Computed example of a mutant assay.
Amino acid sequence: MIDLSIRPAVQVVFVFLTTVSPMTQVAANQPQSETLLRLPAVLAKVPVSRATWWNGIKSGRFPAGVKLGPRTTCWRASEIDALIRSL
């Protein structure tokens, strides 16, 4: 007998994967060699707090991110590397 309690979890994963596809299209517009970094990866390279990072973006000291969705922001690795070289 098949356990049907697993089926809803599979459906949720499928819905999640289909929801990600528009973000993939946005990322596909980036050059092939460009790497996008999420905030934890950026803060691992630039040792400042989250609040300092966001205030730096607002003031123009740090590069603005690329919006992939309403709650998802990434930064181009090349811009972060250039920032590190300029410090």
Score class of each variant (00 low, 15 high):
Ile2Glu: 14
Asp3Gln: 09
Leu4Arg: 08
Ser5Pro: 05
Ile6Asn: 12
Arg7Thr: 12
Ala9His: 14
Ala9Gly: 12
Ala9Gln: 12
Ala9Met: 07
Val13Trp: 08
Phe14Tyr: 10
Val15Asn: 05
Val15Asp: 13
Phe16Val: 11
Phe16Ile: 10
Leu17His: 13
Thr18Asp: 13
Thr19Val: 10
Thr19Lys: 09
Val20Arg: 11
Ser21Arg: 06
Pro22Asp: 04
Thr24Met: 04
Thr24Val: 14
Ala27Gly: 08
Ala27Pro: 01
Asn29Val: 00
Pro31Val: 04
Gln32Val: 14
Gln32Asn: 07
Thr35Gln: 03
Leu37Glu: 03
Leu39Ile: 05
Ala41Arg: 09
Val42Asp: 12
Leu43Ser: 11
Leu43Phe: 09
Ala44Ser: 13
Ala44His: 10
Ala44Gln: 11
Val48Trp: 06
Val48Pro: 05
Val48Gly: 12
Ser49Trp: 13
Ser49Gln: 11
Ser49Arg: 13
Arg50Leu: 11
Ala51Ile: 14
Ala51Thr: 15
Thr52Ala: 15
Thr52Met: 02
Trp53Gly: 11
Trp53Leu: 09
Trp53Ala: 14
Trp53Asn: 13
Trp54Leu: 05
Trp54Asn: 14
Asn55Ser: 09
Asn55Ile: 01
Asn55Tyr: 00
Gly56Ala: 00
Ile57Ala: 07
Lys58Cys: 08
Lys58Ser: 09
Lys58Tyr: 05
Ser59Asn: 06
Gly60Cys: 02
Arg61Met: 04
Gly65Met: 07
Gly65Phe: 04
Val66Thr: 14
Lys67Arg: 11
Lys67Asp: 13
Lys67His: 15
Leu68Met: 14
Leu68Glu: 06
Leu68Val: 05
Leu68Ala: 13
Pro70Phe: 11
Pro70Gly: 12
Arg71Lys: 15
Thr72Trp: 05
Thr72Ser: 14
Thr73Met: 12
Thr73Cys: 08
Cys74Val: 15
Cys74Leu: 03
Trp75Pro: 08
Trp75His: 14
Trp75Asn: 13
Arg76Tyr: 01
Arg76Thr: 03
Ala77Tyr: 02
Glu79Gly: 00
Ile80Ala: 00
Asp81His: 09
Ala82Gly: 02
Ala82Pro: 06
Leu83Tyr: 08
Ile84Arg: 00
Arg85His: 05
Ser86His: 04
Leu87Asn: 09
